[in-house]
Amino acid sequence: MFKLMFLEWKKLKRHSVIGEVIIYWLILMFMPMFFIKMIMPAFGQSYASAIELNFFIQLGFILFGGSLINQVFIEEYKNKTISLSFRYPISRKKLFMAKVLFISLFVFLATMISFILTGLTTYLLDQVFPIINGQPTDSDISTYFSSMIIGSLIVPLIGFIPLFFFAIWKRETVPTIVCSIVTMQLPNFSSFTNFKPEFVIAVLCILGALSIYLSIKTAESVGEI
């Protein structure tokens, strides 16, 4: 399986994907400070608030997941290179599983690195241009690390929501990306509803897991060219 995942990496337009992830990192690095300074100063009350804000900012990597789904699944169908994979002595379920695991691992690592970069940037900038009240406590630091791990796990999971219907069934790029954007924004808009953001995130995680399950379960039939 690791070998198949590695081959997915080799098939990828690596320069463009690495470029894309660097842009994400650069933008998200400065987002908490920008947001506190320009849009919602309330998040600058304490490091605990800033950490909460950052968690929602890092959900931006859901969109990166959509972009990877596009490259790893949709582009392969559009360019018919998927038919090369189908000719190899490997079951479609295994091929799809390798693709899903590859995307999961990539998005997980990218999100994790982004959390670290954003955390460090926010802290250093705050030392030079103080915006957030006080200094981070031990409790804040441990909260940050747990939010980093939880965030890095849920982002890839939620990112798979468009996989089954838009990517494998419909094989359409634009709806996949639009779905990722909408999904990414839903927890932020939960305040307009009676639902807590945690509940929305939990539902999205379930939908992501369901999408993965259906994609692999139906790989032999829906995945047909």
């Binding site: 038919s83 189908f86 000719r87 032999e220 047909e224 060219i225």
Partner: peptide, 9 residues
């Protein structure tokens, strides 16, 4: 040929 090579079933 597609069926013989597993591309389609």
């Amino acid at each position: 040929m597609k069926m013989l090579t597993g591309i389609t079933k």
